[in-house]
Design a protein around this nucleic acid. Structure first.
Length: 500
RNA sequence: CGGGGCGUAGCGCAGCCCGGUUAGCGCGCCUGUUUUGGGAGCAGGAUGUCGGAGGUUCAAAUCCUCUCGCCCCGACCA
């Protein structure tokens, strides 16, 4: 991975290509990190903010987040959850109540010390996550088993003062949803955590078209303050892992810290069981790194803000009138099928320019309607997942709407299949530590292996290979094998990978 | 915090080493014209506190000192 600064790369490329048009995107093979930044900036998903580590989510990026929100919010509500909103500021004393939680989050918290021109009596933490303030309220709301469960979600911003940031993947402030539930029993909380994990898995695969491993975090990777943490992990095109969602069984840790008890049916006093779970704007980054190519963004149709762009091709007013009219008819037919369509009838750009523009922005299907098509009663469709010109298909005008609906479904499926093929081709069963080291050094992919080591063993492997245990997958073969590090016999298999 | 890089027009850069008139180039933008099925051509035109502060000098984008900021890579993390 080179340390080539952005400006340099662009200028070098221009010299090579003798090309002075809009900026080009760094090739993935040349510099993956730079390619990612080029896509984010040039597709106008985000921009750097005046404050270090912060970003502006531009309309193109925010629209993707809105679609993510819409889909997930529906799934949460379908499973009985309700939305609420808790404050941004958390009293310092709350943050201090749960030991592991404090230790986990204190170093990365932004703290407000002054307000209204005066020093505050008690410092206020800008939420890095809301467990503490929410459980301070649950204490007020929960008295009886009849008050349970509480299934609250909130869509919010949080702040974590990270040392190193990357657009969407890790920013100082980010948007997310955080679910916080309260239950009467461990089993119920456990079921909730797993139910959400399943929602996340389903969402990742069905909407984002990204295959994921779902599993459990090891002790050293779990959430600060949880009994255990479940997660979904995805493989990006550079074969690194991205944690795409987490779901925690918090046990009674927060209930005890905030003294939240309820009376059960037998009038016995019990501490409440808790879960919390979240996904963030990082998912936008996942989308980019999973599907996009050297021409720019590639979006799965289900999350693409615009699914179809129609480019009328004309060279005079008459042709414009006719092609735009045809475009509008097609748009109406597609809208009737709930397809999100945009007609690009701008005069100031020529068709070729528009093709490249919409490709860069990741629109799944582009429809071209020109005079030749009008004469033949056709439209020409180009699919973003196969940008090769030979992949263009011609459809009869009459059947175009239904044809495009099918095409969108096919693109959605193709993106998933492609990502899954890539992932499966880059997972290796590893039998010994030397092979793991070699695999990580060459950045060949994920390693699946038997594991019976400790947190210390894990830390040492991280030191030596930079790889961590991404998760203990739920799906286990059940066979027995030998731990790659300790040599002990075990049936537990884990996934090692370098992670974002 | 360590390593690297950058700050000059809206964007991307050159100029700096070796100080010297009106600080250039491409894209974009404006006007006109011909164009329009994979990033159009021609002709005109507008645009700059050279990141900031001090200093050296007859003269500073250029040399010196200090400073601010951002980006990339690594250590921490969703």
């Amino acid at each position: 991975m080179g340390s080539t600064p952005a400006g340099r790369t662009v200028s070098q490329k221009r010299l090579e290509h003798g090309d002075f048009m809009a900026e080009r995107i760094t090739k993935r093979a040349d510099d993956y990190a730079q390619w990612y930044l080029d896509v984010v900036l040039q597709a106008q998903l985000a921009d750097y903010a005046p404050v270090k580590g912060c970003m502006i989510i531009r309309p193109n990026g925010y629209a993707i987040w809105e679609n993510i929100q819409k889909a997930l919010d529906g799934m949460f509500k379908d499973t009985g959850h309700v939305n609420a909103y808790f404050p941004l500021f958390i009293p310092e004393s709350f943050m201090m109540k749960e030991k592991e939680h404090v230790e986990g989050f204190s170093p990365e918290c932004a703290v407000v010390t002054h307000g209204g021109g005066k020093k505050l009596e008690e410092n206020l933490y800008v939420r890095p996550t809301s467990e503490t303030i929410i459980w301070s309220m649950y204490k007020k709301w929960i008295h009886s088993y009849r008050d349970l469960p509480i299934l609250i979600n909130q869509w919010a911003n949080v702040v974590r003062w990270e040392m190193r940031t990357r657009l969407f993947l890790r920013t100082t402030e980010f948007l997310w949803q955080e679910g916080h539930t309260a239950h009467a029993t461990y089993e119920e909380a456990e079921q909730e955590a797993l139910k959400i994990l399943e929602i996340y898995r389903h969402f990742a695969e069905d909407y984002m078209a990204i295959p994921v491993f779902h599993g459990k975090k090891t002790e050293s990777e779990k959430f600060a303050g949880a009994l255990h943490t479940y997660c979904i992990e995805a493989m990006m095109q550079d074969k690194k892992a991205l944690q795409a969602g987490t779901s925690h069984n918090l046990g009674q840790n927060f209930a005890k810290a905030f003294e939240v008890q309820f009376q059960d049916e037998k009038s016995d006093l019990q501490y409440v069981w808790a879960t919390s779970w979240g996904v963030s704007t990082r998912l936008v980054g996942a989308l980019i790194m999973a599907h996009s190519d050297d021409n720019g963004l590639v979006l799965p149709p289900k999350l693409a803000p615009t699914q179809v762009v129609i480019v009328p091709i004309f060279k005079d007013v008459d042709e414009k009138t006719q092609t735009v009219e045809a475009a509008q008819k097609l748009k109406a037919a597609l809208s009737a099928e709930s397809v999100r369509v945009h007609i690009d009838d701008r005069d100031q750009y020529r068709p070729g320019w528009k093709f490249n523009e919409w490709e860069l922005k990741g629109i799944p299907v582009r429809v071209e309607i020109g005079p030749k098509d009008l004469a033949a009663g056709n439209v020409v469709c180009a699919r973003r997942d196969k940008p090769d010109r030979s992949e263009k298909v011609t459809m009869a005008m009459g059947g175009a709407a239904s044809g495009i609906v099918k095409l969108l479904a096919d693109i959605q499926k193709n993106l998933y299949d492609r990502a899954k093929l890539f992932r499966d081709a880059n997972i290796f069963d590893v039998e010994n530590y030397d092979r793991l080291k070699e695999l990580m050094e060459k950045e060949e992919g994920f390693a699946r292996c038997f594991w019976a080591g400790s947190s210390e063993d894990e830390a040492r492997i991280k030191d030596e290979t930079k790889a961590t245990i991404r998760c203990i997958p739920v799906d286990q073969s059940g066979t027995e094998g030998v731990c790659i590090f300790t040599g002990k016999k075990t049936t537990t298999q884990v996934l090692f990978a370098k992670a974002y």
